[in-house]
């Protein structure tokens, strides 16, 4: 545990020693803030219009949770994260391989698992900062409206799991190359594919189509965004995280067998 925390601490510090952490946080805050403003403004205009029309019969409900929070997280932020998470994970192993510091880690009395968990937690800590920023925006809603608080916990859990799954996969991809740009680019491609897998369900009900839809990252975020925690979604994200960590371990093992 001590070793894992040492690695995690160094990873997190490395993000802040380079411009990358500030860049990611700034970019995320601006983009997230823009969408938040946009969605909220639209909501306000829409609700005024409904009021002037008299409201009532047959009108869709104007739930803040449903309209603002769900569309912010499910419709927008998951896509923004597809771009930003590769920026977090691309350096995890690629940079160590390029600079040779991987030799320090792999020849120290650490297990591969301690190193992998340390790196994962370091990256996750930076990601968690982004999510905290998001909830600062969401907090504004409590000043002017009265969204339901409890479903927000499900949203928070969902977005953390969604990000953690991508971080684990991105870390795995980063073990294959010394080149951070390649690691980042490939990660983005893989994330995008996982994101759009469920599109097949629009036209296909074959078993293959259903499997692809099940594998999609989006399918499982839907319930969380609605404020519902379903066991199958929880299991899905935890499995993807475990798979990413496991594949990273295998890949590091292979590094030791081959030339690096």
């Amino acid at each position: 545990m001590r070793n894992t925390l040492a690695i995690a601490g160094r990873e997190l510090r490395a993000y802040f020693h380079s411009p990358i952490a500030y860049l990611i946080i700034a970019a995320y805050s601006v983009v997230c803030g823009f969408f938040f403003y946009n969605i909220t403004a639209e909501y306000v205009v829409e609700s005024f219009r409904m009021q002037s029309m008299g409201g009532g019969m047959g009108m869709p409900s104007m739930s803040i949770n449903e309209i603002i929070i769900r569309s912010l997280f499910e419709g927008v932020l998951t896509v923004v994260l597809l771009f930003l998470i590769p920026l977090i994970t691309m350096r995890l192993y690629a940079e160590e391989k390029r600079s040779g510091t991987i030799e320090l880690l792999l020849t120290s009395p650490l297990t591969d698992f301690q190193i992998i968990m340390g790196k994962f937690l370091g990256a996750f800590a930076l990601y968690a900062i982004l999510i905290v920023i998001t909830f600062l925006y969401v907090g504004i809603l409590f000043i002017y409206g009265n969204p339901a608080a409890k479903p927000l916990l499900a949203v928070a859990l969902g977005i953390l799991l969604f990000g953690a799954a991508l971080l684990a996969l991105g870390m795995w991809i980063s073990t294959f190359t010394k080149n951070q740009i390649i690691a980042g680019g490939v990660s983005f491609g893989v994330f995008l594919l996982l994101y759009v897998f469920n599109w097949v369900s629009a036209y296909s009900t074959s078993p293959m189509g259903r499997i692809l839809a099940y594998l999609s990252l989006t399918t499982h975020f839907d319930n969380f965004a609605k404020g519902v925690i379903e066991l199958k979604d929880l299991i899905y994200y935890l499995s993807v995280i475990a798979l990413g960590l496991f594949l990273t371990a295998r890949s590091v093992e292979a590094l030791k067998g081959r030339a690096s």
Binding site: R10, R13, A14, H17, S18, S99, G100, T101, I102, E103, L104, T107
Partner: peptide, 13 residues
């Protein structure tokens, strides 16, 4: 104790 050919140092530290 191991010193590889390129010192395994983190330039940012």
């Amino acid at each position: 104790g191991y010193l590889p050919e390129t010192p395994p140092v983190y330039p940012d530290m």
